[in-house]
């Protein structure tokens, strides 16, 4: 039998619940840890950023209008999807990060467990981050955590899957819509998770995954006035410059290097606004 010709996949952007090529038509080559060709991925342009933000803005209202319990179910469904494609994810992590096979499998398992963890938090955030406040008067006073809105995430450059899960799922869990820029050199595990999100009941546009250059895509995201928050996790030495751009529209900015202890709620608090409600005490 003759040798099969390889069928290489070109990874597309995950935008508004669909897989699209970049508006620019550009792609770039992704190499594995050993410097061999691994995949072609779309290189997002600033117009892709614009489209992703428009989609996220529309989707955020739908996402937040679901019950918290329902959001939890949807996120859990994402874990189910990832579980079914563990081997594929592990292969990508292995090739991208250069781990050995058992380590890559373990890494994917931890990531999927994190998705389940976030699913659990979706309907418990309000109880933990919110509360009933004592006030001097005949009023009930409640603090309620509400989502910031559209959150951009510059994902970590080194950890291609685990860190992606944390960066994307934490704001999602709090009711935000997310535009995530996957690791520039290792984008495929993040793009795969984006693909899975499309088949996991997540309304289209709630999680958009872009691949591209931190310099250009990051700048478009940071300066975009309709983005409410940005996580600079993987921005590296561009964090300062992106923070300045983000300041133009007074965004919430999460700086890189903010390490959280595992199972801390700190990350969940990053893109939450507290709404305070007063209500008269009646009989």
């Amino acid at each position: 039998m003759s040798e099969r010709v390889g069928v290489a996949k070109t990874y597309k952007l995950v935008l508004n619940g669909a897989f699209v090529r970049s508006e620019s038509g550009r792609v770039y080559e992704v190499l594995d840890h050993a410097g061999r060709f691994w995949a072609n991925v779309a290189e997002a342009s600033r117009k892709d950023v614009r489209d992703a933000v428009v989609a996220a803005r529309a989707a955020q209202a739908r996402w937040w209008s679901l019950s918290a319990y329902n959001r939890a179910q949807v996120i859990f469904r994402l874990a189910e999807m990832a579980e079914a494609r563990r081997d594929e994810l592990a292969e990508h992590v292995q090739r991208a990060e250069g781990r050995d096979a058992p380590a890559a499998r373990e890494c994917v398992a931890r990531g999927i467990d994190r998705i389940v963890w976030y699913a659990g938090w979706a309907d418990k955030l309000a109880q933990v981050l919110g509360g009933a406040n004592a006030v001097a008067g005949p009023f009930f006073n409640f603090s309620l955590p509400t989502p910031s809105g559209v959150v951009a995430v510059i994902c970590a450059q080194d950890s291609s899957f685990e860190a992606f899960v944390d960066a994307a799922l934490a704001p999602l869990c709090a009711g935000n819509a997310v535009v995530a820029l996957a690791s520039e050199a290792r984008p495929t595990p993040g793009l795969l998770l984006g693909e899975m999100s499309v088949t996991s009941d997540l309304p289209g546009g709630v999680l958009n995954v872009l691949s591209g250059r931190v310099g250009s895509v990051g700048a478009s995201l940071a300066s975009h006035e309709d983005v409410d928050g940005i996580d600079l996790d993987g921005a590296g030495d561009r964090a300062g410059e992106l923070s300045v751009l983000a300041a133009g529209s007074i965004k919430r900015v999460r700086q890189p290097g903010t390490d959280f202890a595992a199972n801390s709620t700190a990350r969940l608090r990053s893109f939450v606004e507290t709404a305070t409600v007063w209500h008269t005490v009646g009989r």
């Binding site: 950023v49 614009r50 933000v53 478009s220 300066s223 975009h224 006035e225 309709d226 751009l245 133009g248 529209s249």
Partner: peptide, 10 residues
């Protein structure tokens, strides 16, 4: 004018 995308609420 601004060089950045603006929000519809403008």
């Amino acid at each position: 004018v601004r060089g950045a995308y603006v929000r519809p609420q403008e």
